[in-house]
Design a protein around this nucleic acid. Structure first.
Lengths: 169, 169
DNA sequence: GATTGATATGTAAGAGCTGACATGTCAAGC
DNA sequence: GCTTGACATGTCAGCTCTTACATATCAATC
């Protein structure tokens, strides 16, 4: 068992929900649907698919034009995916550069801090806007809902923090 | 300029807010205060401090017992830290295994999905409990507030999702 | 038929990070 | 003086991930 399965799981998840696809397709789907949750470029995806095929998790269903290889998930792949979803512990490992900025706000003077918080707020607002007009089904609807909750709570935090900075500054 | 400065920034931030410290101290502080925002083990911290010293961002203030080296932030280090805090774009790069699980919930049957959501809820509740009785000042207070907001919105999402699963299942 | 741009797949170098291993110091209790 | 356990620092192998580079196909326009 590999240490970090997340990329494999994400790829298997896409193949399971949206059907067989090429590496290029999967890279596009990462950009458009999984983007708010996980990122991976084609340079990571192509080699990983080869390894996953070697491990029996996917098969090359057929080869199309331009050397296009269409991958499909296997029964073994589905089993691994379900096992991970059901069994994986929601780990405490979160890495957020935004939270790091929030952690260190006290090092800045009030004006600078307010500017940083405004930028963070704008970032959450942009994400909210994208998610809000998302066509049904592009995202899993529960993931969409989670994203909306998180964006809204980020904006609420930014507003409170700006008010506090103004009071104290 | 390196591609990813986050570890450096986190270390500089700790040295700036809590004063000079050894690699061991910094590793402990990562565990206790920065833990909900960023993780790094001593195996990453020790070599990074050496590189940062070579780059003039920190200096070895003095050496204590047991070969203990106390690092202090330099003016150059403070400048880099401020520059990053003020100038860093809150990137869209978020990686959350929890969100990945949420994304793929539709692949599970209702019972399995509910169990996964319960686990996620428990995880957010545990985090909320830890943050709620956090002594003032261990966290930056704005980061603490952000953490509380995020934990609460995670719990709200879990409750809504469980209700929806029960309705539809 | 030549050029251009979107499509599509790949490799390689190097930075980032984790887990396992190795080493030595100091304080306290026996 | 010996053992034990917490303190403290470090290396290394191997995996993950990003950036830059390389290549080839197809469709459309000139």
């Amino acid at each position: 068992m590999l240490a970090d399965m997340s990329l494999r799981i994400a790829l298997l998840g896409l193949l399971a929900t949206k059907g067989p696809a090429s590496g290029y397709d999967l890279a596009k789907k990462f950009e458009h649907s999984l983007n708010h949750v996980w990122q991976a470029g084609h340079t990571q995806i192509y080699p990983e698919l080869v390894k996953m095929a070697a491990d029996g998790l996917v098969t090359v269903e057929h080869e199309g034009a331009r050397g296009r290889k269409i991958y499909a998930i296997t029964a073994e792949g589905r089993a691994l995916l379900t096992e991970w979803l059901v069994g994986h512990d929601p780990s405490a490992t979160v890495r957020s550069e935004t939270a790091l900025q929030a952690f260190l706000l006290a090092l800045l003077d009030t004006e600078q801090a307010a500017a940083v918080v405004e930028r963070i707020k704008a970032h959450f607002q942009a994400r909210l806007a994208v998610l809000d007009c998302q066509p049904e089904g592009l995202f899993g609807k529960y993931a969409l809902s989670l994203g909306l909750h998180q964006a809204r709570s980020g904006i609420a935090w930014a507003d409170e923090t700006l008010a506090a900075l103004r009071r104290e500054g």
